[in-house]
Design a protein around this nucleic acid. Sequence first.
DNA 1: ATGTAAAGTTGACGATGACAAGTTGTCAAC
DNA 2: GTTGACAACTTGTCATCGTCAACTTTACAT
Lengths: 218, 218
Amino acid sequence: MPAADPAASSRYHHGDLPRALKAAAVELITEKGAAGFSLREVARRAGVSHAAPTHHFGDSAGLLTALAEEGFRYLHAALVESAEGATSAADRLVRIARAYVSVAHDHPAHCAVMFRADLIRRDDPGCREWGDKAYQELASGLEALRDEEGSNLDVGEAAGLCWSTMQGLVVLYPGMVEREIKHATEAGAEGYRPESIEDRAERYGYLLLAGLSRSRGA
Amino acid sequence: MPAADPAASSRYHHGDLPRALKAAAVELITEKGAAGFSLREVARRAGVSHAAPTHHFGDSAGLLTALAEEGFRYLHAALVESAEGATSAADRLVRIARAYVSVAHDHPAHCAVMFRADLIRRDDPGCREWGDKAYQELASGLEALRDEEGSNLDVGEAAGLCWSTMQGLVVLYPGMVEREIKHATEAGAEGYRPESIEDRAERYGYLLLAGLSRSRGA
DNA sequence: ATGTAAAGTTGACGATGACAAGTTGTCAAC
DNA sequence: GTTGACAACTTGTCATCGTCAACTTTACAT
């Protein structure tokens, strides 16, 4: 195998075409959304022929599935990292909330694909593995909360609630901002700056925690 | 204009082609997801030529936008209807939660499109109007809660939280069920039946209410 | 050096979205 | 009751797309 030489873009063998293709796909989806994705355009941007991706990813679902797996890896890594330095279970969960939406904010293309059963192969081993690991990280944070509070919190239920809320926030945030801007300008507030998605995630996190702690107290 | 004659499918003029095209699109998206949508296949299923949809919807974004508007209409109608007969503000909100996911369950094709900025024209007047009305219905339910409790609930924040949670639940529910089935069969429970999405929405609704009431008490 | 497999290319096929131009049906005005 | 004129639909075309098959180039092991 040739050494990965970044300056060797003119060679017949690319060096690391899979990586280049994924990068091009991310760029394309970030620009035009999942519906604007096309294998040929990706190949074009990577500077290779239209059939080159086949040898690495099979078909378009293969490439998008690889992207989804990468997204779940990012998510898992971010959730693990966010837990470091937490001062309490509640603090850890709020950090997880921030981390979740940060990943979506930093990797919108990956997230545009991760839960799209019609685009990827959800039963792909890598996809499933890292998705499960990310879920487990959230569940373990909730277990810590349960143990810390000595409550009978239903971890599975709570995990579903938290994940749902963050996922919904990611999808709806642009529309929320738009609505708030319209509302603010109608009210005459011109210098309105919408709250960042991370800050919003944190506030939602506190609200979720309040509900989870209250109704399940020991 | 010819009368809408349902038995006149062999005529040159269709009768109500827009409706037939939307129905075909719903069927197609329900079968294959948003990525499997194609204008020509829709035309084929409606029994007209491949260019017929152009005269009614312009391009594919036009047809999908019409579907999205219809989806927001359904959503608004369901939220309004669900509020009838509520015994309290909290009860009303839980009913709204059920209604939200019911719409997604009953009209998956519409919901697969409603928040997809890359497929539809989100600034379409009809789309925006009915989306806003649906949002207002939720906000009004939360105002009722605030007034009933005499709290200083931030209605905008609460509405964003609730909508996010329900939207996330709709997207993630299939994956949740899959995970639970795997978990249950591993544990030896064969006759496992997953909780319906409506019941789950109701439980999430109660948890959200707990959080919203607790931290904002007057 | 040489053979073989991986990596990339070219070419082809049917399908798609969009557009242009032509047909067919309907209705109002005279 | 003919004649416009407009709406509704069709046919044809074009560039593009995903996928497949067949071919060429490179790298590496022997």
